[in-house]
Simulated scan of single mutants.
Amino acid sequence: MKAISTIGLLILSNTFMTIAWYGHLKFHEWKGFAKLGLFAVIALSWGLAFFEYCFQVPANRIGFKENGGPFTIWQLKIIQEAISLIVFSGFTIIVFRNESLRMNHLIGFGFLILAVYFIFKK
């Protein structure tokens, strides 16, 4: 159950992170946001990133082996990176429809999956 909770919280965390980091790139298309200055965009993104931390910190505390969780610190990091890539890919496909997912991206993702394998290998 701690593994599922950890992964679920990491998915939520990465969703907020991706929106905070890349969502503002579409502000020019949204009425009311198009004229925001850089400082306002930074403040808005920072506000969204707050929620990232509200999920990230508990995920790591619940999932960390020394706190009774199932994962080492290395495993937590590689899980987070893999989830980040998946969330980012979905976000990009949905929000940035002019960006295409190409074979070189898939090959790179394959290497990251291999990284997950090697990090979890005993």
Rank of each mutant, 00 (worst) to 15 (best):
residue 1 M to I: 08
residue 1 M to F: 10
residue 6 T to G: 05
residue 7 I to Q: 04
residue 7 I to H: 07
residue 9 L to S: 00
residue 9 L to D: 00
residue 9 L to Y: 11
residue 10 L to W: 04
residue 11 I to Q: 01
residue 11 I to W: 03
residue 11 I to M: 03
residue 12 L to R: 06
residue 12 L to F: 10
residue 13 S to H: 05
residue 14 N to G: 02
residue 15 T to G: 01
residue 16 F to G: 02
residue 19 I to M: 06
residue 21 W to I: 04
residue 21 W to D: 04
residue 21 W to K: 06
residue 22 Y to G: 01
residue 22 Y to T: 08
residue 22 Y to P: 03
residue 23 G to F: 04
residue 27 F to D: 06
residue 27 F to E: 04
residue 29 E to C: 03
residue 30 W to D: 01
residue 30 W to E: 07
residue 32 G to R: 13
residue 32 G to T: 10
residue 33 F to M: 15
residue 34 A to P: 11
residue 35 K to A: 14
residue 37 G to D: 14
residue 37 G to R: 09
residue 41 V to Q: 15
residue 41 V to C: 11
residue 42 I to C: 09
residue 43 A to M: 15
residue 45 S to W: 13
residue 46 W to E: 14
residue 46 W to V: 11
residue 47 G to R: 13
residue 49 A to Y: 15
residue 49 A to I: 12
residue 49 A to K: 12
residue 51 F to E: 00
residue 54 C to F: 11
residue 58 P to Y: 09
residue 59 A to Y: 14
residue 61 R to M: 12
residue 63 G to S: 12
residue 64 F to T: 05
residue 64 F to I: 13
residue 65 K to N: 10
residue 66 E to N: 14
residue 66 E to V: 15
residue 68 G to W: 14
residue 71 F to K: 06
residue 71 F to S: 01
residue 72 T to K: 11
residue 73 I to D: 07
residue 75 Q to M: 13
residue 78 I to Y: 00
residue 79 I to V: 12
residue 85 L to C: 10
residue 85 L to E: 05
residue 89 S to G: 10
residue 91 F to Y: 14
residue 92 T to M: 10
residue 92 T to Y: 08
residue 93 I to P: 04
residue 94 I to R: 10
residue 97 R to C: 01
residue 98 N to L: 06
residue 99 E to A: 08
residue 100 S to P: 06
residue 101 L to K: 10
residue 102 R to I: 10
residue 103 M to D: 01
residue 110 G to T: 02
residue 111 F to T: 04
residue 112 L to C: 05
residue 112 L to W: 09
residue 113 I to R: 02
residue 113 I to N: 01
residue 114 L to A: 07
residue 116 V to P: 00
residue 118 F to V: 04
residue 118 F to G: 01
residue 119 I to P: 00
residue 120 F to S: 01
residue 120 F to D: 01
residue 121 K to E: 05
residue 121 K to C: 02
residue 122 K to C: 03
residue 122 K to A: 08
residue 122 K to W: 06
